[in-house]
């Protein structure tokens, strides 16, 4: 069984981004970049399925700039067998990314596509669901448990009220939530081995997709600042302030 794992290069989750002075976007100069954490979980899940003998081949793919090769190498160091970069410098939106992924699904015919539930830069949480719709596949989003057996996948999903389990026939799309697994670190020998694994570069035109978007960002501003608070010396003082000053209890 073949698994496709779309990953995204994003600002590292520890970085608190700053808005540019001209409000045209956030300042990404000299900022640490990394694989989107939910994509790390997706790669890990694919690798575990391979270790269990369920999966035979893992293909990591990203749509992004040349620099995103770094994240594909990381995915291969973690256990992906090969990878594909759809190279573009455009800031592609989820619908266009899903269309590019659809073209790759048609080429590679994976049984399972595992994506992150959300990219932590745009916070869209759209791509997996869109890909599922475009390819006519069923979807198991926000997964905290994935079980593949008999041509089906059972997905336990983290929902607002608790957990929901659905069953999908393969091929299917799964998106990962935080509790699905704890990603491993790449070992040095595996990092070395990953350098020799195949990394194909294709253009959006090769796939017949364009990254033109119907959504335009007019401006990007910093959020409203909270005014500085105070330290209270005791629980007593805290309760007094909440009752008489803030009047919230």
């Amino acid at each position: 069984m073949k698994v496709l794992v779309p990953i995204k290069r994003v600002v590292d989750y520890n970085v608190k981004v700053r808005v540019k002075a001209d409000h045209s976007g956030v300042d990404l100069a000299n900022v640490k970049m990394a694989m989107n954490p939910f994509c790390e979980i997706a790669v890990e899940e694919a690798v575990r399925l391979k270790e269990k003998g369920v999966v035979t081949e893992i293909i990591a793919v990203t749509i992004g700039s040349k620099a995103a090769q770094e994240q594909l190498r990381t995915a291969m160091a973690l256990g992906a067998d090969r990878s594909i970069l759809v190279e573009t410098d455009e800031d592609a939106q989820p619908l266009a990314i899903a269309k590019a992924l659809k073209a790759l699904v048609e080429k590679e015919s994976p049984d399972l596509v595992i994506l992150g539930k959300q990219a932590i830069d745009g916070d869209n949480s759209q791509t997996g669901q869109m890909l599922a719709a475009l390819t006519g596949m069923g979807q198991g989003t926000f997964a905290s448990e994935v079980n593949v057996a008999d041509g089906k996948v059972k997905v336990t999903r983290e929902v607002d009220g608790g957990l929901q389990t659905v069953e999908l026939s393969l091929p299917a799309v799964v998106t990962t939530d935080l509790r699905l697994n704890e990603p491993r670190y790449a070992s040095l020998p595996n990092i070395m081995k990953a350098k020799k694994k195949p990394l194909d570069v294709v253009t959006p035109a090769d796939l017949g997709v364009s990254f033109a978007s119907s959504t335009k960002t007019l401006k990007v501003e910093p959020p409203a600042e909270r005014s500085a608070g105070i330290k209270v010396a005791s629980v007593e003082e805290l309760v007094e302030k909440l009752k008489n000053e803030a009047k919230v209890i």
Binding site: P94, L95, N124, G128, Q129, A133, T141, T215
Partner: peptide
Amino acid sequence: ATTTGKNFMPRVAALLDVEQISE
């Protein structure tokens, strides 16, 4: 933008071939 809305709405957008504006 609950887990219900986030789950199905991008699928609607893709079926209509339009982008989604999240949250």
